[in-house]
Simulated assay, not measured.
Amino acid sequence: MGSLKKFLEKNIVPIFILIFICLIIPISKLTPQYLIQEMILRLDRNLFLVLSLLIPIIAGMGLNFGIVLGAMAGQIALIFITEWRIVEYQGVFLAMILSTPIAMALGYFSGNVLNKAKGKEMITSMILGLFMNGVYQLVVLYGMGSIIKISNPKLILSRGSGIRNAIDLQGIRRGLDGLLEIDIFGQKIPAATFIIVIILCLFIVWFRKTKLGQDMRAVGQSIEIARASGINVDRTRVLAIVISTVLAGFGQIIYLQNIGTMNTYNSHEQIGMFSIAALLIGGASAVKASIPNAITGIILFHTMFIISPVAGKELMGSAQIGEYFRVFVSYGIIALVLVMHEWRREKEKRAKQKDDFSKCEGESI
């Protein structure tokens, strides 16, 4: 009975979402074939981005809302490869290469800022993302065309500076997905993208076993003990954020090459929020997350995203109600999980204090 209660407490969010999905799938009247194809598409688009959140969690820095900085780096790289008219998978890989130094610089800046706000990394990374969004828009809206030469008329505004609001990425659309596509029972699977995601998963598993990975785990468990063991805590935390930011840049490029269109000023804004919501729905917390959490979370979160507007339309005659509901749920789940995490941590702390007090009493007797 105790183990069942513990399991329910730990997985209350994914269980709740699964029950909700099971209830509204019949109402939506969507076919299994359609849902499976959509899930393959959503995993293809979002899994790399969600996995980029795992490294900072290992280092005890919580949920990195600052992955939007990596998304900005990826989008700047996509602007350059569109300007140079480099297409297909060559354009995708070149964009990844170009985004890397930009993401590293942004990650280094972000990591140093977060080191000044130990214990408040999540809210700090969120505010930092909003601040850097202003800098990004300043560069893209005023710097490109006037300081940074952009001559492609499909990119530049008629005034001669500033990038257009929407960029057609037709040249690299599905450049990676179409590189190796497999048809299984009528379902198209972008094998090349999933191979890259599998490589990232293997990298994360391997990375946890390295010296740096073990240092990050030690820092995540206790900064004081890690520092006493001779670990350079600040450097380790900065490296965690740099790796996460670079991976987020790659993830944003994979995401946008699948869509084929980039909203220059808005595409990156919700990346952090929705990626974190998906990870939390998968059963992760601010201190513990795994690859299965990421996969499960994307499946549950995006299944809810797909079926709720359709179910809302079937029930109320308006898809807008379902749209409002899924936005409410995405933000509400983040708040719920963080509150539950804090409650669970306080509960564990009280239990530990009680055990320590009992031991002290036993020793005194």
Rank of each mutant, 00 (worst) to 15 (best):
I307T: 15
Q270V: 12
F305M: 14
G160F: 00
G129C: 09
Y265W: 07
E121K: 03
I281D: 01
Q270C: 00
F65M: 03
L63A: 03
I40C: 11
M104S: 06
T303A: 07
L338Q: 06
V140Y: 03
D177G: 08
G249M: 05
S99I: 02
V197G: 04
P309K: 15
T296H: 01
M216P: 03
V135K: 10
L8H: 07
I291E: 04
Y136W: 05
I76C: 02
G2V: 10
A59D: 03
V139L: 10
I182T: 12
E38W: 13
F131S: 10
I76L: 11
G186T: 10
L212Q: 12
L176A: 13
M216G: 09
R344S: 12
V329C: 05
G249W: 02
W84C: 00
S99Y: 03
D355C: 06
G162L: 10
L179R: 00
S99N: 04
M340W: 06
F207R: 11
F305K: 15
S330E: 07
E348I: 14
P153H: 12
G260F: 12
L247D: 08
S285V: 03
I36T: 14
S3G: 00
N152M: 01
H302W: 15
N112Y: 12
G362V: 12
L130V: 15
V339C: 08
I58L: 14
I172S: 02
E269C: 00
G272T: 10
K211G: 01
K149E: 11
G297M: 01
K29V: 03
I196H: 01
I199C: 11
I24V: 11
I321G: 04
V50R: 10
I307G: 04
L336Q: 06
L212V: 14
A311V: 06
I225S: 13
I156S: 03
H341F: 14
I223G: 00
A192L: 06
Y136G: 03
D177N: 14
T296D: 01
A228R: 12
S244K: 13
V219T: 02
K347C: 05
A105S: 13
L8W: 11
P32Y: 10
L49M: 15
V113P: 02
T193V: 13
G111S: 09
L18I: 09
E88L: 08
Q75F: 08
N293G: 02
I156M: 04
L300A: 14
E269N: 14
F274H: 11
M316C: 08
A248Q: 09
R164F: 00
I243P: 03
I195S: 04
P56C: 13
I40G: 07
N11C: 01
G322T: 07
D234V: 06
G143T: 08
A240L: 12
F7R: 01
L63T: 01
I225E: 12
S110M: 11
K288Q: 07
W84I: 03
N46H: 09
Q75P: 00
I231A: 05
I321L: 08
I17V: 15
A228Y: 10
R45N: 07
V197E: 10
G2H: 09
R45S: 04
I55S: 04
S244N: 11
K149I: 10
T264V: 05
S158M: 01
G134P: 02
